[in-house]
Design a protein around this nucleic acid. Structure first.
Lengths: 261, 261
DNA sequence: CGGTTGATTGAGTATTCTCAAGAGGAGTGG
DNA sequence: CCACTCCTCTTGAGAATACTCAATCAACCG
C-alpha cells in the first residue's frame, strides 16, 4: 500500500479514485508560509518536494480510519477535514477541525489514532512518513515548526475542553461561530468587527459532534440566536452577523466582550 | 523577578518561602529517563544543569497565574499540579493534570496561558526560559523529546475531550479513576489487573473541574460506585478496586472491556 | 469546644436529550 | 414538469440527567 511520489507530467488516479500528482510546486502553494514547511528554505524545501504527493478527497469521503496503518503525514492545502473519536455505542466526539495549513498525522506512529473525514472537497499535500521522520530528525526548521504547530493545537484543544466541560449549549454555538469567523478572517485577512458574513463548514450533526451536543439542540440554539437577531441565516449554512461583538458576548469568554475592561 | 540558578551548597528560600537549590544532580533524578531531558547525554545534560534550579510548592499554593510573565519552564519532579482555565463568572475547567516527569510552560511564550496550582507538595525542576529556548534550537535531543511529549499531551487532551463531550457522569468518574490507576501503575511499574489500590490526588471539587461536573455529582457518583461494590473507600481519598476490569466496563471506553473482542 | 474545610445527602429545578413527526431542497426518473 | 426519494434541518412533547440550593456530617485545628 505504500504510495510513491509521482514525477509524471499528467495527473493520475489511485484505486480510490483520488487525484494525485507531483507536478505542483511549492512556490505557488497557498499555504507555503503557514504550513509545517514554512520555515524551510532551499535544499530543505527541495528535499520535501521529493517525498511529497498530492491527494484529493470529495465531501464525505473518509481520509483514514482510526486503527489503520498510515504511511504518510500531510498538510491540508484546501478544504476542511474532521478528526473524530468514537465510543463503541456510536457516540462521537470531534477532536480536531483541520483547515488549510493544518497538519495531519503523527511522525513516529504508524497507526492512525482518529478517524479523519473530508467535510468539503479536500486537497492534501502528503509526505511519505519514513523519509519525513528522518527529515524531522535532521532538519531543525521542520521540527521547530512542527513543535510550534503542535503546541498551538494543544492550546486550541484546551480552549475546546473549556467549551465542552463548562459552557452552555447557547455559549457553545456562539463560540463555534466565533471560531469559524476568526479562522475565516485569518485566511481572508478581513476585519473582525461590525457586519460579518461566513459559511458554516459543517452540518448540524457535525457541529453537534464538535460541541458535545445533539443535532436537535444545535438546531434549536442556532434558531434561538436567529430569532434574537444575533445572527441572520440564508439557507442552512450561510450566516450573517450584524454585530460581531454581540455574538462574542453570547460566547461567554472573557476578552473583547464589547466594552473595555 | 528573574531568578538565577543557585550554585550554593546550602538550601535557600525565596520570597514566597519556596525551597530551591542547585545542588541536586541529574544522576539520581527520579524522572531522568522520562522527562524532557531524557534523550540528552553528556554535554547536553551538563548545559541543562547550568540553567536549572529547583522550586517547591506546598499543597494549594499557586505556581503561576494565567496572564503572568513566566521566566522559566519546568519538569514536575514529584507531586501533582493542575492547569486550569476560568470563565469570567467563575466556572473553571481543568485542562492539564501534571504528574512527575510532565513538562510545564511553553518555550517561545513569555505569558502564562493557564493558572497552575500545586495540589500536593510539588517539586519542580525549572529551566531559565531564554537559555532553554536557545537549547531547543540547538540540541535536537531536547526538541525531539519535547515534540514527543507535546504530542502525547495532545493525544491525552483529545481523549479528555471525548470524556467531556460525550460521557455520562458515571462514566466520567470511572474513566478518571482508571486514568489515575494507569498513571500510578506506570510510575510504580505495577500490574493493571485484579485488586488495585490507589490514592485520589484531587479533592471532589478538583475532580469536578477535571470532569466538567459539579462537586455534588462527583460525590454522588463515587458513592454510587461504592454501593455497587465497584470500588471501596477508606477515608475520602484512598480507593481500592476489587476488580479493575469492572471499573473499565463502567468507563465506557472501547478496549479491554473485560472480554476479548 | 467553636470554627473551618471537605464531603455527603436530599429535594426541587432546569437544561439537554430522546423519540417522533414533518418541512424544505436537491436530485432522479418517468 | 411532476412525483418521488433522500438528506438535512426544524419543531414539539415528554423524559432524564445533572445542576442548584440547602442542610448535615466528619475530620482537623487552634
Amino acid at each position: 500500500m505504500t504510495m510513491s511520489a509521482q514525477s509524471l507530467t499528467q495527473i493520475k488516479r489511485n484505486e480510490a479514485g483520488n487525484l494525485f500528482s507531483g507536478i505542483e510546486g511549492c512556490d505557488s502553494c497557498p499555504i507555503r508560509h503557514r504550513a509545517v514547511c514554512s520555515l524551510c528554505v532551499g535544499d530543505e524545501l527541495a528535499a520535501l518536494e521529493r517525498i511529497k504527493f498530492y491527494r484529493s478527497f470529495e465531501p464525505g469521503q473518509p481520509i483514514v480510519w482510526g486503527g489503520d496503518r498510515m504511511d504518510f503525514v500531510a498538510s491540508v492545502v484546501s478544504g476542511v477535514a474532521c478528526l473524530s473519536q468514537r465510543l463503541e455505542d456510536g457516540r462521537t466526539q470531534m477532536v480536531g477541525l483541520l483547515l488549510p495549513s493544518d497538519f495531519m498525522g503523527r511522525p513516529g506512529r504508524d497507526v492512525v489514532a482518529y478517524d479523519a473525514v473530508a467535510t468539503t472537497k479536500v486537497k492534501l499535500c502528503c509526505f511519505r512518513r519514513q523519509p519525513f521522520e528522518e527529515m524531522i530528525r535532521k532538519v531543525p526548521h521542520l521540527s521547530q515548526r512542527l513543535l510550534e504547530m503542535t503546541m498551538d493545537e494543544l492550546d486550541a484543544a484546551r480552549e475546546w475542553m473549556l467549551l465542552l466541560g463548562r459552557k452552555t449549549a447557547r455559549e457553545k454555538i456562539a463560540s463555534f461561530i466565533a471560531i469559524i469567523a476568526r479562522r475565516q478572517a485569518a485566511i481572508d485577512a478581513g476585519p473582525l468587527n461590525g457586519r460579518i458574513t461566513l459559511e458554516l463548514p459543517l452540518t448540524r450533526e457535525a457541529m453537534a459532534d464538535y460541541l458535545g451536543l445533539t443535532l436537535e439542540t444545535v438546531s434549536r440554539q442556532i434558531n434561538a440566536l436567529k430569532r434574537e437577531g444575533i445572527l441572520e441565516l440564508s439557507g442552512k449554512r450561510h450566516v450573517v452577523l450584524p454585530e460581531f461583538a454581540r455574538l462574542l458576548q453570547e460566547a461567554g469568554d472573557d476578552s473583547d466582550g464589547g466594552w473595555i475592561s
